[in-house]
Design a protein around this nucleic acid. Sequence first.
DNA 1: TTGAAAGCGCTAACAA
DNA 2: TTGTTAGCGCTTTCAA
Lengths: 338, 338
Amino acid sequence: MAAGTKRRVRMSDVAQVAGVSLATVSRALRFPESVSQELRGRIETAAQRLGYAPNRIAGSLAGAHSPLIGVIVPSLTNAFFATTLERMTVTLEAEGFQLLIGHHGYDLAREARIVSAFAGWNPAAIVVTGLDHSRETVAALSAADCPVVEMWDLDGHPLDALVGFSNTEAGRFAGRHMARAGYDRIAVVCSTPDKDPRAAARARGVLEAHAEATGGRGKAALISVDGRELGCGALGLDKALTEVPDLRAIAFSGDMLAVGALFEADRRGIRVPEDLALVGYGDLDIASNTNPPLTTVRPPRGEIGTAVAEHILKRLKDPDRSGEIVTLNVEMVVRDSG
Amino acid sequence: MAAGTKRRVRMSDVAQVAGVSLATVSRALRFPESVSQELRGRIETAAQRLGYAPNRIAGSLAGAHSPLIGVIVPSLTNAFFATTLERMTVTLEAEGFQLLIGHHGYDLAREARIVSAFAGWNPAAIVVTGLDHSRETVAALSAADCPVVEMWDLDGHPLDALVGFSNTEAGRFAGRHMARAGYDRIAVVCSTPDKDPRAAARARGVLEAHAEATGGRGKAALISVDGRELGCGALGLDKALTEVPDLRAIAFSGDMLAVGALFEADRRGIRVPEDLALVGYGDLDIASNTNPPLTTVRPPRGEIGTAVAEHILKRLKDPDRSGEIVTLNVEMVVRDSG
DNA sequence: TTGAAAGCGCTAACAA
DNA sequence: TTGTTAGCGCTTTCAA
C-alpha cells in the first residue's frame, strides 16, 4: 500500500476510452442532461469500467469553492455538539459535501487559528459555535469569503446567518419553573462562565426569571465550577450547600453537573427533590434514566445540525439568504428531580 | 459577506511586493532555511502586510498529497471515539494537517462510501475503525494510495498499519475478574454483537476467561441488546435476571449499559454488589462517580488518538514504517460494583 | 451538442 | 541562492 505505486484513473482516461473530449466527460458527470443520451451512456460505462473517481482537489481548484464545509465547535467530547455534528454530516454528505471539523476547547485564540486554517481550503461555508469571537476570527471569517453560520446562540448580533436558540431563555425556563414550584432559595451552579458565554447566559436567565417570578422575595446565588464533568457537579452541590442557608433547589448549567450532584446527594443522604430539588440543562439520554429522573431544559441539539445544513444548502443556491436567522426553541422537561 | 467580492491575496502578489519570484516565495514559506536571510525577511514582511494565506487546494493539486487526513469512526456521539478524535486533531493540527471526519453508524456499506469520498481528496492518510471492512472499502482504501491505519482493534489481520488493543483481552480481564471474585453464574449483556465486532469480541472474551477461571463449573449467558444507551442496560438487566437463575454478576459491553443497569437495580431494590455485581467497559468519567463506583475495563481511548497521529507523522517521513503495529493495553479498574 | 483551450494558484524540476 | 517553466486534473468559456 505504498504511495505512488499505481497511477490513478483520471478524467482524460475516461474521455479516451469513451472516445469523446475531456470537456464532454466533465459535463456528462456534472450535468448529465446537457449531453446526448448516447454519449452519456458511453461515458458512464467507461467511467464505471475504469473505476474513475473524480479528484476533488483538482475540481475545487478549477471551481470557485471546494465542497468542503468547515465546522468549529468548542469540544468533540461534549454530547451536545456531537449530536449537532452527526446530523450536519448526514445531511451535507448526502449532497456531496465533506466536513472539516475543528474544536477549540473554549479558547477564542484557537478558534481564530482554526478559522484561518479552514479558510485556506476555500470552503463552501464555515460554521462556528456561538456569537463570541475574537477580532482575528472575524477577520479570518470575512477573508474566507464564503457564507458564515453561527450556531447554538441567539443572544447577540450575528456576523451573517444564525441558527440557534436563546440561552438566556433556556435559563429563564428553569428559573421560572423553580419559582413556581415554590423554591425560593436557590443556587445556580455554572461551569466556567468566564469562558462559556452561553452557560453564563443561561445562569443569568435563571437568576432573572427567578427574581421576577418570586417578586424579588427569593434568594439566589451564582456558583461557578471549573469544568463540565460529574465531579464538578458534586463540588457545586457542596459549595451551594455551604454558601446558601436553607437551600431548596439548584439549577445546573449542564446535565452532567446535575447528575454528579444527584450522585453526591445520594451519598449524603439528601433526598431529591424532598430535601433539595435539582434541575439540569441538556436533556441528555441520562436525564430520563436517573433516580429520580432529572427535570431539565432541552436545547434543540439535533435540530440545530439539521437546520444549519439545510440553511447552507439553500444558501448556496440562493445567495440572497445571507443574514438569515433561524430561531429554534428550548423546552422545559419536568420530571421528578425538581 | 457575499462570495466573490474581494480578490484573495495570492502568492504572486507577495512575490511582486517583495520583489522576488513566485518560486522564491514558495520556498521561503515552505523551507525557510533554503532562502537567504534577507529575502526571507522581505518575503515574510510582504506576506504579513498583505495578509497572505496560502490556498491549500492549489498547493495540494501541485503536490503529491493533500494535508488532509480522513478518519472514519462508527459514531461521533460515542464518547470513546470522540476522545480519540480530539487527541488526533490536536496532534495533527499542530503539524498543519486537517481532519476529514466521517461516521458510518456501524454500517459497513456506508463506511465504503465514505472511504471513496475521502479518497477523492488525495489525503495524506486514511484512518478507519476496526478490522472488519467490506470488499468495497478495501478496494477504495487501496485505490486511495496512501497510508491506511486501522484502530481500536488488534484481533485480526490489518491491511496496513494498526493501532489498538485486543478487545478479546479486554473481555477476558472482566471474565477473569468475575470468576476470581467468586461469581460463578454470570451474564454478558452485549449491544448489537452482530454489527459491532469489537463488542462481540469482548463478550466472547468474558465468556472464555470465565469458563477457564471457573474450571468450567461456572455458568454464563450471552444476552444481546439493541443499543448502547442506558435504557438498553436496564433492559439487559431485566433479561439477564429472567434468563439466568441465581445470577450473581453481569458484564456489559459498555459503561453506559452498566450505569443504566445500576439505575434499574436501584429502582428494583437490588443491592450492588451484594445481590448482583455489575462490571462495565470504558471507564468513562461517569464510572468513577456512580453509587457504588463502577468496576470496569479501561481501553486506551485517548492514547489511541495520540498513537495514530504519531504513527502517521512518522510514517509520512519514513514510508518504511508501513505495516507497523502499535499495541496498547487495557486495564482492569476494580471499584465497588463488582 | 460537442470540442479546443485557457486557466485555477500553487509545487518542483531544472537552469542560471 | 534564485528564477523560469512546466505541469497537477479538473471547470468553463468560447467556437464550431
